[in-house]
């Protein structure tokens, strides 16, 4: 947690002037000429974006060699909702549907649990809950997303094979074949699916398969400022997820008794988390 070193260059004078004038809003008005070659690097060519998951770029992608897992660290989540915002923008998710969301759990001194999730956490949590009259003992946030079950109920029930588990362990949806029957939505124990009101086909979190295949982290993992979301390949012994899962921390999955064997793990989740 090192503070940035103050650079006392010519910026300092401008700064002091601004302080004297009582405004610093002008600091964003610096006009920087755009150069053509800069623009090109800023284009979407993933090679120009540094790799975030090692071992994917370069050689031919072999689906059978990876075992991806997602870990949510509840003890680090600050409930800012960055992940929800990024997710909504990455996929243009229609309002009222959520590929991922962040729940707020509140436990009062009588062990009553109150959960809420206004607008899926998209607006963050600006205010404490006011409808709880007992003293609050504990508060924590729980991000939710697709569990990428090893034995997914959604795949089991899809009548046309439009939702499936790929050889690299991602449960994906073939929106070209989905008939929009919503059976998978009923079957998913975690309620991560919805029927997209625009395409009328089923949709859910894909752990950003398109980014992972480009060697990048899922967008929610990338934007999380608190590093509460972690993603990686368990077959890579150097990965953070491998270290966490093989370490001593308390790791759980949601609704274990459903028998879906999720690949989404929760670190520090209490028993009240459903």
């Amino acid at each position: 947690m090192d503070r940035e070193k103050p650079e006392l260059n010519e910026e300092r004078r401008t700064f002091i002037k601004k302080v004297l004038k009582g405004t610093i809003a002008g600091s964003l008005l610096l006009v920087i000429p755009l150069r053509a070659d800069d623009l090109e690097t800023s284009e979407q060519i993933p090679e120009h974006i540094p790799e975030q998951i090692p071992g994917i770029r370069g050689s031919e992608y072999d689906m059978s060699r990876h075992r991806f897992v997602f870990i949510v660290d509840i003890t680090r989540c600050i409930g800012c909702g960055s992940c929800c915002v990024a997710d909504k923008r990455e996929y243009n998710v229609p309002d009222g549907n959520y590929r991922t969301w962040v729940e707020r759990y509140i436990k009062d001194i009588d062990e009553n649990i109150y959960v809420d999730c206004p607008n899926g956490g998209l607006d963050g949590y600006q205010k404490p809950r006011e409808d709880i009259d007992r003293p609050v003992r504990d508060t924590f946030f729980v991000p939710k997303l697709c569990n990428m079950c090893e034995d997914p109920s959604c795949v089991q029930v899809c009548p046309v094979g439009a939702t499936f588990r790929s050889p690299d362990g991602f449960v994906l949806i073939d929106s070209e074949r989905c008939i929009g029957c919503a059976y998978c939505i009923q079957a998913c124990p975690y309620s991560v699916r919805f029927l997209n009101p625009v395409t009328h086909t089923a949709e859910k979190c894909s752990w950003c398969y398109h980014r992972v295949r480009r060697g990048l982290l899922p967008v929610c993992v990338h934007v999380c400022p608190a590093k509460a979301r972690k993603f990686g390949d368990l077959n890579d012994k150097e990965s953070e997820v491998y270290k966490i899962l093989s370490g001593p921390g308390v790791i759980t999955v949601l609704k274990r008794d459903m028998g879906n064997s999720p690949s989404l793990y929760y670190k520090g989740a209490r028993r009240e988390v459903i």
Binding site: Q44, P46, I49, P50, E90, Y209, H210, R213, V219
Partner: peptide, 13 residues
Amino acid sequence: EADRDMRHKTNTP
């Protein structure tokens, strides 16, 4: 699905 367009491109660009 792998070819889907990325809309977020990290801080680098």
